[in-house]
Amino acid sequence: MTTPLLSLTWTDHVTGRRGYLVVDRLVRGVCSGGLRMRAGCSLEEVTGLARGMTMKEALHYDPHSRYVPLGGAKGGIDCDPRDPEAYGVLVRYLRAMRPYIEQCWTTGEDLGVTQDLVDRAAAEAGLVSTVQAVYPLLDDAAAARARLAAAFAIEVDGIGLDELVGGCGVAEAALAALDRDGVPYAGARVAVQGLGTMGGATARFLARAGLTVVAVADARGTIANPDGLDVEALLAARDAHGVVDRAALRADDRRLPVDACLSADADILVPAAVSYAVDAGNQHRVRARLIVEAANMPVVPEAETLLAARGVTVLPDVVVNSGTNAWWWWTLFGDVGADADEAFAYVRRSMRALVDRMLTRARADGTTPRAAAHALAEERLPVIAERFGRFR
């Protein structure tokens, strides 16, 4: 891994909790990457995520698009988002990071924080917006901001468009892989670990495509049903942290331990919660033949090697969950309007093309999909640097 451009550690003077910012690369002086909050978040974790953002940006580079990929970055706070002190920590972190957010780092929701929460804390910290650093790169910043605000105001069947686009991309990545292997959707079984923004939307899109969601996990445990869960009912019964009210379960829905989701009898496993969920010690429990990484870094490298030896394919996070970040910029730069159908169509088309390139490259090189995705990104980074300059 290359050395990041900037790496810093912040200590909250009130609680002593720590936060981190890592800027892996700048393009035109700007970088992009969300802000996560979880107990145990570390500088090493944030550094890996920042590098992943650099690759996600590069993988979506299209010289014919208005959207110009940015550099990669990431923020992280070591605090449980359910802690009563969490919001104050978030505000103070953003206040401390204000110079970076104003000048170079565009950020938004990630694990543990919603966009609404980030926006509220950012306003309290004195920020105009968490993406204001990109405004100078826009042809018409006022029109772009209005377009993005209009897109964020759209709801589809009770869920915000901004919460759905990422899951749409994850689902499309899974469907593209099934199509390449000639696997019919009907009868394909799915387990989703995490029912927050990304996991919930992924479950919805896969269920609506005709797949059977047989297990979902939240912080309280796994909910399973071999005949298929009522995904819409579970989504409607979630709280702000993606935890399902068990009163919404049907009589034949089973309640199992949290980690039971990993060993569910499913064809596809979608880890959509924390990083490092599948490691060398538990990978043998995975029964699915396809793992689709909706979360960032959920499968550790040692586990991926062991899984590959068992014939399990892992579609990597840098491709699978890149749709949310790309949609923000497609909308802001004007490649996509404030319209749900247009957004979903653009995400689906882009993700299918990217997954196809990755899997074709993996087959040609005799490597894993992750190695192929990294190779594609590494080939594009010099092209971007040549066109827009390098800040390292």
Rank of each mutant, 00 (worst) to 15 (best):
Pro226Leu: 00
Val231Gly: 12
Val355Asn: 06
Gln115Ala: 11
Cys31Gly: 07
Leu307Lys: 02
Glu57Gln: 12
Arg255Gln: 14
Leu229Asp: 10
Gly71Leu: 02
Asp230Ala: 07
Gly166Trp: 04
Ala203Asn: 06
Gly108Lys: 04
Leu127Lys: 01
Asn325Trp: 00
Cys168Gly: 00
Gly40Ser: 09
Arg250Val: 13
Gly29Pro: 03
Ala149Leu: 08
Ile223Phe: 05
Ala251Gln: 10
Arg98Gly: 09
Gly210His: 08
Ala362Gln: 03
Gly242His: 12
Val286Gln: 06
Glu124Cys: 00
Arg38Ile: 05
Met37Asn: 03
Arg310Lys: 15
Glu109Asn: 06
Tyr346His: 15
Ala295Cys: 11
Asp356Leu: 09
Asp335Ala: 12
Met55Leu: 14
Ala295Lys: 13
Val214Met: 01
Val170Asp: 15
Gly33Glu: 09
Ser263His: 00
Gly200Asn: 09
Trp330Gln: 03
Glu44Ser: 12
Ala224Tyr: 01
Asp252Phe: 08
Pro63Phe: 03
His60Pro: 01
Ala364Asp: 11
Leu211Ile: 14
Met1Phe: 04
Ala86Leu: 08
Leu21Lys: 03
Arg220Met: 07
Cys104Ile: 09
Arg208Ser: 10
Pro136Ile: 06
Val258Lys: 04
Gly160Val: 00
Val347Leu: 03
Asp252Glu: 14
Lys56Ile: 04
Val118Glu: 04
Ala203Trp: 02
Ala248Phe: 07
Glu172Gly: 13
Ala201Pro: 14
Pro298Asp: 09
Arg38Gln: 09
Leu175Gln: 05
Ala266Val: 02
Arg180Phe: 05
Thr11Met: 08
Thr367Cys: 10
Tyr93Ser: 08
Ala217Met: 05
Pro84Gly: 07
Arg370Ala: 02
Gly221Ile: 04
Pro316Ala: 13
Gly76His: 07
Thr313Val: 15
Arg180Gly: 11
Glu386Gln: 06
Gly200Lys: 09
Asp162Arg: 04
Leu381His: 04
Arg189Leu: 11
Leu332Met: 15
Asp335Met: 10
Ala150Gly: 11
Tyr93Asn: 04
Arg17Val: 15
Val314Glu: 02
Pro63Ala: 14
Phe388Cys: 02
Val244Gly: 15
Arg392Lys: 12
Tyr61His: 12
Cys31Leu: 01
Arg254Pro: 00
Gly196Cys: 11
Met1Asn: 10
Asp12Leu: 06
Ala219Ser: 13
Glu379His: 03
Ala176Trp: 02
Val292Glu: 11
Gly210Asp: 08
Asp83Met: 07
Asp335Pro: 07
Glu386Asp: 08
Ala144Ile: 09
Pro136Leu: 09
Pro316Ser: 11
Gly221Gln: 05
Pro184Ala: 13
